[in-house]
Simulated scan of single mutants.
Amino acid sequence: MSKRLAGLILVTDTLFLTYWFFSLLHIFGLFELPASMMYGDFEEPRVFAWNWSFFPIDVLFSLSGLLAVRLSRRGDPRWRPVAIISLCLTFVAGFMACAYWAILGEFDPAWFLPNLALVIWPLFFLPSLINAAAQPT
């Protein structure tokens, strides 16, 4: 795994796990998130549910990404398929969020651009990972 890919995975996945950690603390009343940092209409039940619908996919892409980095550092060739899974889930999570905000016509850079980054950066690595995984050993 290239240093660039490992770095992007580590930063993205650590940030997402941190986001969900503080979101869980907020749910349990242990941490107050400033309203200025929240997405539009975050207090509406449907929007709240929409946001939490991303929890499973975000945790899955984060944990699989961290596992891919760990496997790569150990020299375990299974890192490639695990990284492919992680990057596909990352792309899908970002794409779903961008689609939601685009349908609403809300392009708040604080929320739209990070999700757009989740769509774009995996595309730089997926083709080569898929090609390498398809090569006979």
Rank of each mutant, 00 (worst) to 15 (best):
2 S>G: 08
2 S>D: 13
2 S>T: 05
2 S>H: 08
4 R>Q: 06
5 L>Y: 06
5 L>Q: 00
10 L>W: 12
11 V>A: 13
14 T>R: 11
18 T>V: 14
20 W>M: 12
21 F>Q: 12
22 F>R: 01
22 F>S: 08
24 L>C: 14
25 L>T: 07
27 I>Q: 15
31 F>M: 13
38 M>S: 06
39 Y>F: 15
44 E>G: 12
44 E>I: 06
48 F>E: 10
49 A>D: 07
50 W>N: 01
51 N>K: 04
54 F>Q: 10
55 F>R: 10
56 P>M: 04
57 I>A: 10
60 L>K: 08
61 F>I: 04
61 F>K: 01
66 L>M: 11
67 L>P: 04
72 S>Q: 01
73 R>L: 08
77 P>K: 04
81 P>A: 13
83 A>W: 02
84 I>W: 06
89 L>S: 03
92 V>T: 14
93 A>Q: 05
95 F>A: 14
95 F>T: 00
96 M>P: 04
98 C>E: 13
98 C>F: 10
99 A>E: 09
101 W>D: 04
101 W>T: 12
102 A>F: 01
108 D>T: 05
109 P>I: 05
113 L>A: 14
113 L>F: 13
115 N>Y: 11
118 L>W: 00
120 I>A: 11
125 F>G: 01
127 P>D: 03
130 I>Q: 02
135 Q>E: 15
137 T>H: 12
137 T>M: 13
